[in-house]
């Protein structure tokens, strides 16, 4: 159902364009000459073994990690050459969910969600609170969570609040770092559905780093495989299953991959 909702790929509906990205830490090269396109309206899964630099790639897109080489273009803006004002506009039009939510521990849930509104807009406090409460409702949390502090929340709730904060500025692009890691299967499936619903109703583009095979099968339109310091393949899962690269075969055809595929009736 996920695949049917996206438009056919054309040259100019690429939202994020990475070209020739090279990341090096000391003598350790993480990415070399890496290319990746994220298309508008799709949910792209980013997979790869531990230590292949999935999170580094995400941080490079966000601009938290400066690449040694290559260019990043987001919504047609080159993030290396654009003026600070243009880059600020781009930064306001993406939402990022870090692994553990990265909530501000000194602010309540409601204040956490309102934080970007308070910083970047001048809308009235009453409407600000209404927006925050609506987002809280959208991510499936009860309103009585609003006055709580991040320390009082469970891991799954923290992720949902983090997602609400990422969504509050109505971003075009949503970047998720392992959104379902550490959630129970029911919670993880609900989170997957939530991302899918939000994409469908708000027209978001989503890029998620994940280890969760079930999420890949359930919601990702395409999956990018990070291995050998570059994106080895970007494709739909059925096509990736035919890819002869050993790691991909092991990933999807291993015991866990088979179980997830069986659950979805793909393999």
């Amino acid at each position: 159902m996920a695949a049917s909702t996206i438009e056919q790929p054309t040259a100019n509906n690429v939202l994020v364009r990475l070209r020739g990205i090279t990341n090096r830490f000391g003598r350790n090269t993480v990415h070399e000459n890496l290319d990746l396109d994220i298309r508008k309206g799709e949910i792209l899964g980013l997979i790869g073994g531990s230590g292949t630099g999935k999170s580094v790639l995400l941080r490079t897109i966000i601009g938290l990690n400066k690449q040694q080489n290559g260019s990043i273009e987001i919504m047609g803006v080159n993030m290396d050459t654009a003026t600070e004002a243009t880059k600020a506009k781009v930064r306001n039009s993406w939402g990022v969910l870090f692994q553990d939510g990265a909530l501000f521990s000194s602010l309540s849930v409601l204040d956490n969600i309102q934080f970007p509104l308070r910083e970047f807009t001048h809308i009235s406090p009453a409407l600000r609170e209404s927006i925050a409460r609506m987002k809280l409702h959208m991510v499936g949390l009860p309103q009585d969570a609003a006055p709580k502090f991040p320390g009082d929340l469970s891991g799954g709730m923290r992720k949902r609040v983090g997602l609400a904060r990422a969504l509050v500025m109505d971003p075009f692009l949503l970047l998720l770092d392992e959104p379902t890691a550490g959630l129970d299967p029911v919670g993880a499936a609900a989170f997957d559905q939530l991302v899918l619903t939000l994409r469908n109703s708000l027209g978001l583009t989503v890029c998620m780093v994940t280890h969760d095979l079930d999420s890949l099968y359930a919601i990702c339109d395409r999956v990018a495989v990070l291995a050998d310091k570059k994106i080895l393949a970007v494709d739909t899962i059925p096509k990736l299953l035919d890819n002869p690269y050993p790691w991909i075969q092991e990933y999807f055809k291993g015991p866990r991959g088979r179980a997830a595929a069986f659950g979805k009736g793909v393999a």
Binding site: T5, I6, E7, K40, M75, G76, K89, V90, S93, G203
Partner: peptide, 14 residues
């Protein structure tokens, strides 16, 4: 069912 409005590519506020 994508809701991208025509001007989605230009984040300039109008």
């Amino acid at each position: 069912m994508s809701f991208s409005s025509p001007s989605q590519n230009e984040p300039s506020p109008k």
